[in-house]
Every structure is written in C-alpha cells, then in structure tokens.
Design a protein around this nucleic acid. Structure first.
Lengths: 249, 249
DNA sequence: TCACAACAGAGAGCAGTGCTCGCATCTGGA
DNA sequence: TCCAGATGCGAGCACTGCTCTCTGTTGTGA
C-alpha cells in the first residue's frame, strides 16, 4: 500500500526495520491528512500519534514538505488506480469510449467525495511554492493514460466526432507529450496533435467539475449533484467527440 | 477600492479615522497576499509592514480568517468586474455570444495569471473548514451573472445550438438558482432549467482550464498555453451550444 | 562471540505563528 | 476642559517546523 523507496527487497535487517517504521509514519500521516487536511497536517501531531519525539520523525523524512510529497505520490497513484479500474470495468461491460469516459469521471468524483482532503492535496492549491514535480510526474500521468486510451479507442473505432471547433493543433502540445500520446498511433500527424490537445480538454472538464463542487462553488446550485456532474462531463466530452447518452441514467 | 463596512458616509471623525486605518490594513494584507500567497499570509507580518504591534490589528479584524474573508470578497469583486468588463467590451465590438464567452474566459485567465495568489484564494482549496459563505456569495455571483447573460443572449437570438447530450433538467438546479437565472426569461420552463445547468458547465470548464494550468497539471504540456486554453474553452462551449470560431485567432 | 560504529530516539532550544489580556496613552465629543 | 472610550503596546500562552547535542541501543563485520 505505502510507497516506499526503491529497494523492494531490503537487504539488511536494519533497512527492513527502517522501511517498516517509515511505512507506519506514512500511514499515520495519511490518517491525519484525511482527518484534518493538508494545511493542518502537523509533523508534531503525527509524531505524537506514533508516540515518538517530533525530532525522531526527521530521521525518516527530510521535512514536512517532503512528507507531503510522499503523500502526494501515493494519492496520485490511488486516484490513477481508481480511474484505470473504472475504465477496465466499463470496457468489460462493453461500454463505448464515451460511456467509458463518463464512468471514469464518475469514479474519480466518487473517490474525491469520499476523501476530499486527498483530492485537495493533489488537485487543489499547490502546497508550497513548488512541490518537486519530477517525483510526482509518473504517478500523475496514470490519469492521463486513461484519458488518452479512451480517445485512442474512439479514434480507432472511428467514432470520434468532435462537435467542438476545428483548430490548428500546432503549439498546443509539446513534442514530449506527443511522444507519450502518439506511441500507439504511429507517426506524428495532426490527428495525434489534436487528440493530445483534446485530452487536456477532458482533463480540465473533470478537474473543473469536481473542484467546483468540492470547493463550494456550486453551493445550493443543484438538488442532484451527481446528475449535474454527468451533464457537465458529457457536454464537454461531446465537444471533444465523445457522445454519451444521458437519457438512460 | 477597498471594500469597507456598510457606512459609506462615516458619521464621526473617529469612525472616519477607523475606516481609514482599516483600509490601510486591507491594502497591506492584499500586498502580502499577492506576494506570498494566502497560506503564508501572516497577521504579524502585516502588522510589521504597518509599523504596528500585532495585537493592534485585532482592534480592526476579528481573526486571520476574518481578514482572509474580507480579501476573498474583494477578490470576487475584482474578478467579477474583469469578466463584466470583458463581456461589455466584446459586445461593444459586435461579438456574438460564443465570441463574447471566449473573450470573457481569456480575460479571466489573464487576470489569474497576473495575480495567481488572488485566484488561488477564491478558486483554490478553501482556506479553513468553511469560509463564511453568506458574506462572499453576492460578490461571487457576479461571475455567474456574466455567464448567464451570455447564455440568455444566445437563447434570445436563437443561436444556442447545443452539441452536447440532451438531458432531463430536473434536479440539476434548485429553485433558488432558477429564480436568479429565470428572472429575465419568464416562467420556469425546461429551457430555463437547461440554461441554468449549462451555466455550470461553462463555469466548470473555465475553472478547470485555469486551475489546471496554474496549478501545474499541464506542466510542459504545451508551447502556447493561451492557444490550448482557447481550444479547451471553445470545445466545452460548443457542447453547451456556443460555437466559436478559432480559425482566425 | 564481541567490540564498536552507526543509528534511532529524546529533549532542549530557536524563530516563527495566531490570539488574549492587562495596562498605558491619547483623543474626540460633550 | 475633562474624561470615557477608543487605541496601541508588550508580555505571554500554546502551537508550529526545524536543528542540535546527547544518550542508549542494536546490528554487523571481524
């Protein structure tokens, strides 16, 4: 569960014990996080929970921000796994790409509502000036992988029919992104550029819909927030070319 | 500039002096906020900037959170004014509703990029458990007013052609929202409900697009983030029924 | 098996925070 | 002019992140 360092097989007994303690530390920190939120997460409080002096914690973690970074990575992995699972389940039920995306979005929303502080940790205001981005990138990319897979599937099936505007795709996406997205789509064509751009649209609509609801910007707006969420996601997805049917449920 | 209490005409000299000091306090706090961000905003630092003991600040403001709430209201008003101005300018230039919305979105993005900490203050992670919502609501509604006006204009012109899915609008919106939105649209019809729901879609797409960029989720994604933003906004707007042309610029 | 080096933990301490309270001081309004 | 109430100050409390030094333990290589 807890993401430790590289050595998956600790050599010495000392390293094993150390990994054990660090895992307990991360678990305690996660409990505090999900109870009080990232802003209130106090290293001293975590130390108290563990029955340990606050200074001892610094044997395992460089700083409070480093601890938060570890939790951020864990959380990106958790939400990435939720999205991947939702996509797999939907496809197993024979869902088309549009339906698959809707169910992924619903799953992520459900996860966010269940643990709002975890969602805030990764998709809310960044904690300090900058969290170390490079460490978190691989885990953060899992969500993007799901989005791109949905778009690729639709493109291959030929069901990707954008209702949104046509646009010059150049400049919208960097070569690095194209490399990731285009891997399964052959040479770098304008289509690949377009799909990459549209993955951002899907991501932004998901982020916006969940953040707006969670952060109170839709306060007293709807009776059925789940239904409103479906509309928001499906509407943006239609612009991208994924047309989901909301008449059934 | 600074939003003071209700008495726009202070009766006594004492009250005038008090309002003056409070305004200076808010200005200093805003400067700190825009320099360091809400999380780092320290009441003691503001007091130092004013050359005053930290305890003296409490004569004018109940707590740090109360000070933040005042800044939040100011900020909602600022971004609301930006949106209103952008809409007015666009209409003065003869822009259609879709174009108007795109320019509003661009203006808000420009404002957010210029003062990211102000944006984070209102659209990022809420500061404490709950900010007093009732005080901030009127200012926060200005943005929604702009969105609804664009949709109403399109509906009246008959150019509102949604590409997104059809949906049962009931439950998506509360009567209170309908009262606000439907004021200029006559009786509560399903069309009013639909427009209200779609205002949430526009809002969410704007929030998601700016937050994603500002919070680093599009890190190294694009060369031209402005162009990517246009695509995101226009694509979601197309789902709602506002079709903007991106081929010109 | 054993000595020792490396390591984990404790606790004091520093600088910072929000906030309270009692005390002086000043000043506006009668 | 006079004084009550407004205003500011500074000490102090409890909390934070983080550092430093010291002690006791424990795993490990010889």
């Amino acid at each position: 569960m807890s993401t430790t360092e590289v050595p998956s097989v600790p050599a010495t007994a000392r390293e094993r014990a150390r990994a054990q303690v660090k895992a307990e530390l991360l678990d305690a920190a996660r409990a505090r996080l999900e109870a009080d939120g990232a802003a209130e997460l106090s290293l001293r409080a975590v130390a108290r929970d563990l029955g340990v002096a606050s200074s001892a914690v610094y044997r395992y973690v460089e700083s409070r921000d480093a601890l938060l970074t570890l939790l951020i990575i864990e959380t990106y992995d958790a939400v990435g796994a939720v999205a991947e699972q939702a996509a797999a389940d939907a496809r197993a039920r024979g869902a088309d790409p549009a339906r698959t995306w809707l169910e992924v979005a619903r799953a992520v929303r459900g996860w966010a509502l269940a643990q709002p502080y975890a969602y805030e940790l990764i998709y809310g205001t960044p904690v300090r000036g900058y969290r170390a981005p490079d460490d978190t990138v691989p885990s953060a990319l899992r969500m993007w992988g799901v989005i791109v897979s949905v778009l690729q599937q639709a493109a291959e099936e030929g069901t990707l029919a954008p209702a949104g505007p046509d646009f010059d795709p150049h400049g919208r996406v960097t070569p690095a992104v194209v490399a990731v997205v285009g891997g399964a789509l052959g040479p770098v064509s304008d289509d690949v550029l377009r799909i990459a751009s549209r993955s951002a649209t899907l991501f932004c609509s998901l982020l916006g819909a969940i953040s707006a609801e969670l952060f109170g910007h839709l306060h007293r707006f709807a009776d059925d927030y789940g239904a409103l969420f479906d509309v928001t996601i499906a509407t943006a997805a239609a612009g991208v070319g994924l047309h989901a049917d909301l008449s059934d449920a």
